[in-house]
Design a protein around this nucleic acid. Structure first.
Lengths: 106, 106
DNA sequence: CACGTAACTTTGTAATTAAAAGTTCTATTT
DNA sequence: AAATAGAACTTTTAATTACAAAGTTACGTG
């Protein structure tokens, strides 16, 4: 059965996913939502963060199974690229829905 | 002069305000944006967090001058209420604008 | 004056965030 | 062959943040 009551802001707040509350991770997800895959280096340059930093955020998203990795050699150089998983896409959309509901009251 | 170029997602990410990246603080601001003032106890119950926790988040928003305090007695009992300041309202709207721009690409 | 309630503060601890430096692997250059 | 370089990490170190639990202060009530 469908929902009848509009959940309150409070309820939407509980639907927020902490994995997406960090702006770097938000950036990673945003990039992966609009591109089939994005490389490690592209992400790092795009978001202007250190190696240690982006690697940490990537690891968190990987641990949640929100993104997947593809390791290959391109032009004889190592290339690590990331894609959003179905689980990640769903979770991210849910997060954005909650955010949207919260900010709609503006 | 008006902006011509739509800022990219990356640029919007930089416009996010860390003060609003925590969901409890997001909840406090959301509540204060739609009500003239909300009491300490209301906020605590609404967001279901401990005294120490909400007091800490309130302090952060106060330090940023995003919210202001009104202390009074109501029915002979102490009552502390909070309101959003102009600075807070502006900052919050800017944050939401940035968020909206980021999630528009969905 | 003991007790309750609002509103904090303090304490202690764990988690998060991030920069910097070090590591590994492979490829290229000398 | 040795040195150099780039990609992609990991480790180290440090600072900040988050949060629960317990303690504190001020005022009011019975």
């Amino acid at each position: 059965m469908k929902e009848i009551l509009t959940p309150t802001v409070t309820e939407h707040l509980k639907l927020l996913d902490r994995a997406f509350e960090n702006s770097t991770r938000l950036g990673i997800m945003s990039a992966l939502m609009v591109a089939d895959s994005v490389s490690y280096t592209e992400l790092k340059n795009l978001l202007k963060v250190s190696d240690g930093n982006i690697a940490g955020h990537i690891k968190i998203l990987e641990r949640e199974e929100y993104i997947s990795v593809i390791k290959q050699f391109i032009d004889r150089k190592p290339n690590t690229s990331y894609s959003v998983t179905e689980k990640g896409r769903t979770a991210f959309l849910r997060h954005l829905d909650a955010l949207e509901a919260i900010l709609k009251q503006r």
